[in-house]
Design a protein around this nucleic acid. Structure first.
Lengths: 247, 247
DNA sequence: GTTTGACCTTGATCTGGATCAATCGCGCGC
DNA sequence: GCGCGCGATTGATCCAGATCAAGGTCAAAC
């Protein structure tokens, strides 16, 4: 009998996000046991590279703690981040045994890994997992499209404001749904990594941060700790319309 | 018994791409009959809007002929294309009844539509379809990430060259796998739509096209018909390394 | 065959963000 | 405590691409 309320019981098994996101702990015991059998944990420190584009990858994984980034590098060194992975996000692609992008830990990171082959078999035998993975992938695609608007059409100031609001929002979902009024949070990225995210240089990032500070949109209690006194004022700088996104 | 060779029998049922891509015609008759029962065709002319972001969408669809674009618009009119849909690409998102983006026909377009609710039910009852959809979505995500590198880090000239090579390649898959040497094809987009794709203005697009023509990288036998005398030379202008992409 | 309008090209100028360069601040190892 | 090095800030200058403006081309409508 299908479940109703408890789709993602984050509290029950906080260590393994894919568990909550792929299946429901209380309804689908079989899959949980299968997942359990093929999983293991790995940790990385801030700045460490988890895999290089082109490397063989014998696992897929789910972020438990920390933040990781996917990026691409051109021969001459120009670099663009193409994915930002927060806790519960998925790393790796079923049916592909080589990494398509560099994966780096931007903070200390813990991953929950699943050996590739058994995971793939499970995708075939357990439709609920591949259906959940489809949902997650579609969400990522929507995020990528929002990001494309940012890269292609927003000004530097709008880019910074958008980035801050994204981080604030994803932090906030753990507490309240939509942040409003006063918000404080930690940046999981260096200025350089922010620049790679936003398609800017680190100097421009720094200047725009200073400018937002001067204008009272944000305050810095530390290079990395941001205080947003009025979240709506920040949203107003993003260039997005009120609701800021996907319907 | 599972199939071997004929995964995408394009010839057998050229009218309905999702059929070939989601299931194999010779192996999974049941799904085909189900799909058959809920499908219908729709046609649009170049320039027509298929749906606006926020509209109710009671169908999902597959592009049969022509090219459609997904785009986002900011309040002040800045516009960014976020998806380019060629034949066999999928439109719409299961479990979401409102469009997230504007969808416009950039050439005359024919869609093969499936009524949403029965299609969703089928996703649940028929794992092979949702697995196939997962593959397609992951491919789209990879394309989006390639596109993000283009938007964030490439010069105008590299953007144009990359765009031309993408169109040439996707046209060419119908004939030979990797184009090389002499290639000719039709642009499915106006200069303005190209600008929206690339995060440029139409004037810059026009200038860079002229510049590539002056340098002999391309020739125009018409505003829309492009001739590439040496595909490798074009690839060299894209800024990508030799193989140009995902491993 | 002339008008109209959609598309495209080209020129002149301006500007946001890149680039080059100097300095600051702070945590860490010795 | 001191020097080192990484990350961040700030200033001066430059330039790729935006913006503003004027035509050009061509097919369809009258």
């Amino acid at each position: 009998m299908p479940h109703r309320q408890h789709a993602f019981p984050q509290v029950d098994c906080a260590q393994c996000p894919i568990r909550h996101r792929a299946v429901c702990a209380r309804c689908e015991t079989d899959e949980l046991e299968q997942l359990e059998a093929i999983k293991y944990y790995r940790s990385y420190e801030a700045g460490q590279t988890i895999v290089w584009a082109g490397d063989k990858m014998d696992f897929v994984a789910s972020v438990v703690h920390g933040v990781a980034a996917l990026s691409q590098t051109m021969e001459d060194g120009r670099r663009q981040m193409v994915g930002l992975l927060l806790p519960s996000d998925f790393i790796g692609r079923p049916n592909r045994d080589r990494a398509s992008y560099d994966v780096t830990a931007t903070t200390d990171v813990q991953l929950c890994c699943f050996r590739r082959m058994p995971f793939q078999e499970m995708l075939i035998t357990t439709p609920s997992v591949s259906q959940r993975l489809l949902e997650m992938t579609l969400d990522e695609l929507d995020a990528a499209r929002e990001w494309m608007l940012l890269l292609g059409r927003k000004t530097a100031r709008e880019k910074i404001a958008s980035f801050l609001s994204i981080i604030a929002r994803r932090n906030a979902t753990l507490q309240a749904k939509r942040p409003s009024g006063h918000v404080a949070f930690e940046l999981p990225l260096t200025r350089e990594a922010m620049a790679d995210y936003l398609g800017l240089t680190l100097e421009t990032v720094s200047r725009q941060m200073s400018s937002l500070k001067k204008d009272g949109v944000i305050a810095l209690e530390d290079k990395r700790r941001i205080i947003v006194p009025d979240f709506d004022a920040l949203m107003h700088e993003t260039g997005d319309d009120a609701d800021g996104g996907v319907y």
